[in-house]
């Protein structure tokens, strides 16, 4: 079964280790795989290395040990050009959206598009921005500055910016953190919509169990730098392990 999963996996991580200084091993051999079109939710206590794992996936942080395969390519030692070719196919939604403060919403979306889709006509260019903003239902905020947006709107714009390059993989770093219950649910539904519409594979890091239930096809729990438990929401909720169950209370 595991072999079968790995064969169709778009993301395959084996024995991922990362430490920061002496005696600070954050990841101690994480094994993870994500199938095409699958939404994988990663939960765990703060500081358990969830964000580090997805940052290693796009080489924002270099792993100390382990093999990371994305679309079947080992990315550990890829050169800049080859790595960028893979990065374009991965969308990353940061915890605080990471919108460019000095640019309007439209410019935020245009920034990656201008650099990677140089052959687009002006009309196609505008259409792509509008389409992306419409998919997150924020077309009216096109000319606003990030400082004029609410937390939920910022998340949506961040999402639109990652979607504009039509990624095959989406990485969400705590997409509902700092948002109210209703907005959190809206973002969770948006994640599902994106998965269905674009057939993306996703890794969603969250502490929000409602988001995990709504979006996750499978859930993994990180503990002490390794994958401690794995399964669907329902199976983990009924787990015999008290510590695992404590996440679902």
């Amino acid at each position: 079964m595991q072999e079968e999963i790995n064969a169709s996996a778009v993301i395959n991580i084996k024995g991922l280790c990362k430490s920061f200084g002496e005696n600070n091993d954050v990841l101690k051999g994480v094994n993870l795989s994500v199938k095409k079109g699958e939404n994988l939710v990663v939960i765990g206590k703060s500081g358990s290395g969830k964000s580090i794992t997805i940052k290693c996936l796009v080489r924002l942080i270099d792993a100390d040990k382990g093999v990371i395969k994305v679309f079947g390519t080992t990315i550990n030692n890829l050169g800049e050009k080859e790595l960028n070719a893979i990065r374009i196919r991965i969308g990353f939604l940061f915890q605080n959206s990471a919108l460019y403060d000095s640019m309007t919403v439209k410019e935020n979306l245009a920034f990656p598009l201008m650099r990677h889709s140089t052959k687009l006509s002006l009309k196609e260019f505008d259409d792509a921005i509008n389409e992306s903003l419409e998919s997150v239902k924020l077309i009216e905020a096109k000319d606003k500055m990030p400082s004029e947006l609410s937390g939920g709107m910022r998340k949506r714009v961040g999402l639109a910016r990652t979607l504009i390059l039509k990624p095959d993989i989406m990485l969400y770093d705590e997409p509902t953190t700092g948002l109210d219950t209703i907005t959190s649910r809206e973002i969770s539904h948006l994640i599902l919509e994106i998965q269905k519409k674009n057939k993306t594979s996703s890794i969603i890091i969250t502490h929000d169990m409602t988001c995990a239930k709504l979006t996750g096809d499978r859930i993994v729990i990180l503990r002490d730098g390794i994958i401690y438990a794995e399964g669907t929401y329902d199976t983990l909720e009924k787990s015999e392990d008290e510590w695992v169950r404590s996440f679902f209370i």
């Binding site: 796009v58 990065r87 991965i90 990353f92 940061f94 990471a98 990656p112 650099r115």
Partner: peptide, 8 residues
């Protein structure tokens, strides 16, 4: 980081 992951 956002720039870097968008291959810029």
């Amino acid at each position: 980081d956002a720039m870097e992951v968008s291959a810029i």
